[in-house]
Write a protein that binds this DNA or RNA. Structure first.
Length: 282
DNA sequence: AACTGTCCCTGCAAGC
DNA sequence: TGCTTGCAGGGACAGT
């Protein structure tokens, strides 16, 4: 489901609705969602603490607790975070529930909902972050949260080979770009998924870096992309609107909105569906 | 070191 | 209608 813009929208929702409120109690319904550290560590680590900050790196949400511990939430394919008043009927696959202290007289719950259970919630001591979450250290720069330009991207691509699209999906190269935004970025910058790094001029890489930042920022502004099948929603349950601006993703067989002269094609690349305009992208 | 295919799991749509 | 098949936005892992 979620890529950087959707995760950032969820992060902002947590910042607004959860940070600063004491967590009174915790329920864990499905152990798989807390598999990394286990149910007891999550319940004990969160109960009677207060989140003091909500940050993000790539698709990882990283919250700080007043106890000194940290919480990592990853939504993977189908995870959602929702904040609802106590007593609201919980949807199927609500695996973790935080009971929040009332604010303005309203007691709420924060839910981690995840049908496919690829997502996870981890509570850990930041001192041991490298041991608990070794993947964080390998992440490339976050184009929104970190300095990011053509020179930095060129450095990340140095020594890499193969097609550009799988490289954009590689979180060690750039953190936060997923399948939708990779396709949208490549279309706006006029590059076919199959172009190899060695055929790209520095000027083109500069442009690529700029467009990555541009599209991710626009999508955040739109509250992310909500597709037809899954419903990505923010913590209030609102859908995003950036799908209205998609030029290739989900538009296979439809006319290209940019050149107006050909149809969007779809192929599988490294196991991912890939949409592109054969005329605009070369 | 870095690339590719496989797997984790559930739900949904398309095809028969 | 009911079954099977394939596909879905991510990423760890094994094998090369």
């Amino acid at each position: 489901m979620p890529e950087l813009p959707e995760v950032e929208t969820v992060r902002r929702g947590i910042e607004e609705r959860v940070v600063g409120r004491k967590i009174l109690s915790v329920e864990v319904g499905r152990e798989r969602s807390v598999r990394r550290v286990g149910k007891e560590a999550v319940i004990q680590g969160l109960t009677n603490t207060t989140m003091v900050a909500a940050r993000r790196r790539g698709k990882y949400i990283l919250c700080e607790l007043d106890s000194g511990d940290a919480v990592m939430i990853h939504l993977r394919m189908s995870g959602r975070v929702l904040v609802e008043p106590v007593g609201t009927k919980r949807p199927p696959h609500t695996h973790v529930v935080l009971h929040l202290a009332p604010r303005d007289g309203q007691a709420d719950e924060m839910w981690f909902v995840d049908p496919r259970t690829f997502g996870e919630v981890v509570v850990y001591d930041p001192e041991y972050e490298g041991a608990v979450l070794p993947e964080l250290a390998k992440l490339g720069p976050d184009p929104i949260a970190d300095p990011f330009d053509g020179a930095i991207l060129a450095r990340r691509l140095a020594g890499r080979r193969g097609a550009i699209k799988p490289l954009l999906l590689n979180q060690h190269v750039v953190a936060g770009v997923g399948n939708i935004y990779a396709d949208e970025v490549l279309h706006r910058v006029g590059l076919r998924w199959s172009r190899t790094v060695d055929t790209l001029s520095q000027k083109k890489i500069d442009q690529l870096a700029l467009v990555i930042k541009e599209i991710l920022a626009e999508a955040i502004e739109s509250g992310g992309s909500t597709l037809e099948d899954t419903q990505y929603v923010d913590v209030e349950g609102n859908v995003g609107s950036f799908q209205e601006n998609h030029r290739v993703y989900g538009r296979e067989g439809l006319g290209c909105l940019t050149c107006g002269k050909t149809f969007i094609r779809r192929v599988m690349v490294a196991g991912r569906s890939t949409a592109y305009c054969p005329r605009c992208q070369r």
